[in-house]
Design a protein around this nucleic acid. Structure first.
Lengths: 234, 234
DNA sequence: CAGGAAATTGACGATTTTGTGACAGGTCAC
DNA sequence: GTGACCTGTCACAAAATCGTCAATTTCCTG
């Protein structure tokens, strides 16, 4: 059960210690020394879990937690807070704020790993699970079905994710690099041309249900999903 | 969010203190002074949550937790353990054993209440006792029977719970991890592939009564129970 | 209209995911 | 005890999907 974990901790020694232990447990760790940096990283990298020190210089851990809970995209990311012994109010405040668990320093590596595992396990199912309807197409992440009117559309996992992304970001041109980041994940190493191939497969699956022309090529830039017909001039 | 809580604690003073606080928070508290009594009460009263002191005369808290997890009917009841400071081994052992949380004595009433609230919250939508009928299948939790029309279907306990969950959450795709959480319990350590095996056994039991195709595989995501046919078109 | 960059397409081997059968333990009623 | 279930895990087979490539077509530029 490897996971991407963002560690927010201002003290280098502790940061190092925790990172080493998590790494040994098979997790991938990204570090941040303050809440502002952490917030940026969360937006970009969308980690699976945030390990958050409650006492930080500048923006406090509580404030960061509040912001993460306020943003729809980061709301579902579990947070485990690290507190010094005796900060009892914080524990309560943290749990009420939406932290999924907390650990009191000092703690043992085994305990930390056990907690992380437990939290990851019970991670809620829903994450942008709302159905999307657009231009005669309907895609439902919860049931993992795509349909054009009555007719169902069969897609492979990657095509499904690609279509989902395009449908949630329509009318906008996405470069191949952006699509790789968003659909494949920013850590994957594949040719940009691969995007072309999947776009083609997606088009092939959409064409027999009368949804051709939905995905448009913008020469030199990338692809765009649009309910409007492609413009000839530009 | 009132709840029935079983408090297992051998020391009368602490028992009194906790019970008073929980009562003030609107919970209904039943008390037990030892693990044997507690076990009997759990079987009879099926509380919503067990507050369990780890150090008990006679049967230990750990042993009681193990037994509760072993019994199908009590498996889902959340357990919060109470430990004295420094019993770090116990914390880990407890979390691995299936405790949902722990609190180190001494603790503040506010913290205790917050923890209980948190644990109860993430334990929200659970199985009902009502019979479920869906797509020619009928499952009755009360009698523990499954039938397809007139023909009965024989299932093992795990397959029964799996089918029960799928029938109460149809159409939706469930990842293996989610199924482990919901059907096995979020504290069980088993391989994800175990789900595959049980799905297979379930399919094997359903097929002779003409209910094949009910449980569908969604490649890369998980499984889904659906009366609708899986997408054929390809 | 030619040249060339960019995009499409079809094919194919590699990789990942899932289905299956077997098996060693464990539990429980007898 | 003991024998009939259940269970979780493997190793392997089968199936589906993926990424890449090379050939081809499309489209813009000059």
């Amino acid at each position: 059960m490897a996971a991407n974990i963002l560690l927010v901790e201002d003290e280098p020694a502790i940061q190092e210690l925790i990172a080493a232990n998590l790494g040994r447990a098979g997790h991938h760790v990204v570090r941040a020394g303050d809440a502002e940096t952490a917030q940026r990283i969360v937006r970009d990298a969308l980690p699976d879990l945030v390990l958050l020190d409650w006492m930080l210089p500048g923006m406090s851990g509580i404030e960061l937690a509040r912001r993460l809970r306020a943003d729809e995209r980061t709301r579902a990311i579990p947070i485990i807070m690290l507190t010094a012994r005796g900060e009892e109010q914080d524990k309560v405040a943290g749990l009420e704020m939406g932290a999924d668990d907390y650990i009191t320093k000092p703690f043992s590596p085994r305990e930390l790993v056990a907690r992380i595992k437990a939290v990851l396990r019970r991670r809620a199912p829903q994450a942008t699970e709302d159905p999307v309807a657009l231009g005669g197409l309907c895609l439902d992440p919860a049931t993992h079905r795509v349909s054009a009117g009555e007719r169902p559309v069969a897609l492979g996992p990657t095509e499904f994710r690609l279509l989902h992304f395009l449908m949630t970001h329509p009318e906008r041109v996405h470069s191949r690099a952006q699509l790789l980041d968003q659909v494949w994940g920013d850590h994957v190493f594949v040719e940009e041309r691969t995007v072309d191939v999947h776009v083609r497969r997606l088009r092939a699956a959409l064409e027999p249900v009368g949804q051709d022309g939905l995905i448009q090529t913008v020469r030199g830039s990338g692809y765009r999903l649009s309910a409007l017909p492609a413009v000839a001039g530009v």
